[in-house]
Amino acid sequence: MNESLKIDNLHASVDGQPILKGLTLEVPKGEVHAIMGPNGSGKSTLAKVLAGHEDYGVTEGGVTLDGEDLLAMEVDERSRAGFFLAFQYPHEIPGVTNANFLRAARQARLPKGEEIDAVAFYREMYEKMDRLGMDRKFTGRSVNEGFSGGEKKRNEILQMMMLEPKYAVLDETDSGLDIDALKIVAEGVNAMRSPERAFLVITHYQRLLDYIVPDVVHVLHNGRIIHTGGKELALELEEKGYDWITKEPVAA
């Protein structure tokens, strides 16, 4: 069985401009992979393509989730199939409370006619918010509206904890976080690590990987994975920058 998130020779464009140019990688269940890369290498494009954003067109290649064709699924189907993207810039939804939003997301996973157990839902949500150090007032506030950068990122992790995906992609979750918030977010992610779940952590900085220690580190450059190594690769990149690696294989 292919118990993995498998990306195979993925090509994708935005406005006709090719960004991903043959990206291949596989994240097996139980592992944490990191993707690092300089600005403009295609990191966020990968995240949006996996989530199914309509502005990003796949021109070649494929993605499977436990052997199922992820790209053939609608955006919401992907989520219900166990895929999760923690957004780099979470959107604000005026007038829709965080609690109602999470509830609707959970409700969407139940069979038709089945209702969510509201008491158990709130108990679980409060418990998870406590773990993330989120004030309970956030349940009644509109989704992400007026949240600070750090609060938005915590809210993404709360959603991940409530939806318990099989495969989670974190898109620059560390950007805009101070060190305390970073630790809390990392603890939340680490608590979810399990043989039944995989993470793909996209980041520009090695700092996050001190707290979420990856099994594998990939370097993305110009739309392709150009180097793969262990967790020590992240430290090496931090120390030496990207040049030694991006300039190494003088374009074939």
């Binding site: 199914g52 954003h53 609608e74 992907r78 959107h91 007038g95 829709v96 997301a105």
Partner: peptide
């Protein structure tokens, strides 16, 4: 897109956003 990325079907997402709009 944000609501759908959390598994909420498109029609339900539209309704939630419209209700939220009036709720304000």
């Amino acid at each position: 897109f944000y609501l759908r990325a959390r598994g909420i079907p498109a029609e339900a997402a539209r309704r939630m956003i419209s209700l939220g709009f009036l709720h304000e």
